[in-house]
């Protein structure tokens, strides 16, 4: 029972990171109809920036803030100077450009920071606390879960309660109509990329210090799992991304805990296949006709 609880909390904590990362993928998918394969590498880059600030100033919180700001800037930059000019005529073009960006970012990070693992500190204890004789959850796990949930709520409020959120949704669903109503659709796309990359940057700062280690390829596996989570939830659904992330986190935690870590990548593949076979649109896909 102890072990089950431990795996559950551990799964929810890493699941929260997958949820954030999946959410970032969904944000870009909804805005631009493309899967940002460079998101993992972008998050590693901003995490390097964040930890450079942490080691320079000694403040984790300053580093976290700078990493998120760097995410905003990097996301806007990638959209403005790169993705905007990749035609939609050939969907493979976008994938190839994104993969090229991955290679570029990883090579630059290797040249600037080196290809060996660098230490990264965290502000909270990562050892699980004992509460009433049950050892289940660490303070760091709580911080990760709490931080992601706060971001999820803030994003939900942004999209449903503010006028820029309304503009962003309208641009994604009906770009031409939005332009006729005076919405600068191009700018909304840039804002969407910036937001997504900032959320990805947060996820990188949260997950890289634990287990992964700071390394140019640190987020490769996280990206694969988060992509699975996004597909599980339905690429079009932010709520699906969050639930999918938590669900995938839990499943992987149980698989790793009970069957051993070697089976984890296999479990991701099985899950992805199962969802694609049974419910190709994802758990949260809504089948509704678009009459436009």
């Amino acid at each position: 029972m102890d072990r089950f609880l431990f795996l559950t909390f551990d799964g929810l904590s890493t699941g929260a990171v997958y949820a954030a990362f999946a959410l970032a993928l969904v944000l870009i998918w909804r805005a631009a109809r493309l899967v940002n394969f460079a998101q993992g590498a972008m998050a590693v880059a901003t995490t390097y920036v964040g930890y450079t600030v942490v080691s320079g100033t000694g403040s984790y919180w300053l580093g976290l803030g700078v990493a998120v700001l760097a995410g905003l800037a990097l996301g806007a930059l990638v959209e403005r100077v790169l993705m905007r000019f990749v035609g939609h005529a050939n969907p493979l073009g976008e994938v190839i450009v994104a993969l090229g960006l991955v290679l570029l970012i990883q090579a630059v990070l290797g040249m600037v920071f080196g290809n060996e693992y660098r230490p990264a500190t965290v502000p909270f204890d990562t050892d699980a606390l004992s509460v009433g004789g049950i050892t289940a959850v660490s303070p760091y796990d709580l911080w990760v879960f709490g931080a992601v949930m706060v971001v999820v709520v803030l994003l939900a409020l942004l999209f449903t309660r503010t006028s820029i959120g309304l503009r962003m949704r309208a641009s994604a669903f009906a770009p031409e109509v939005s332009r006729l109503l005076g919405v600068n659709v191009g700018r909304m796309l840039t804002v969407g990329w910036a937001l997504a990359a900032a959320v990805g940057a947060l996820a990188g700062m949260l997950v890289i210090p634990t287990g992964l280690g700071l390394h140019p390829h640190a987020m490769d596996m996280v990206f694969v799992v988060a992509f699975t989570a996004a597909v599980v939830g339905g690429l079009d659904s932010p709520a699906g991304a969050v639930v999918g992330g938590l669900l995938v986190g839990l499943i992987l935690s149980y698989v790793t805990g009970y069957l051993g870590p070697d089976t984890t990548p296999l479990a991701v593949l099985v899950l992805l296949l199962a969802v694609l076979l049974v419910r190709p649109g994802g758990l949260f896909s809504s089948v509704k006709a678009r009459h436009v």
């Binding site: 006028s163 309304l166 503009r167 949704r169 309208a170 669903f173 009906a174 031409e176 109509v177 939005s178 006729l180 109503l181 005076g182 919405v183 509704k288 678009r290 009459h291 436009v292």
Partner: peptide, 17 residues
Amino acid sequence: GIVAELTVDENLRLGGL
């Protein structure tokens, strides 16, 4: 040319943003 995914109220607000 309405935005089918948005509510009636949101569509109208969009027109005045």
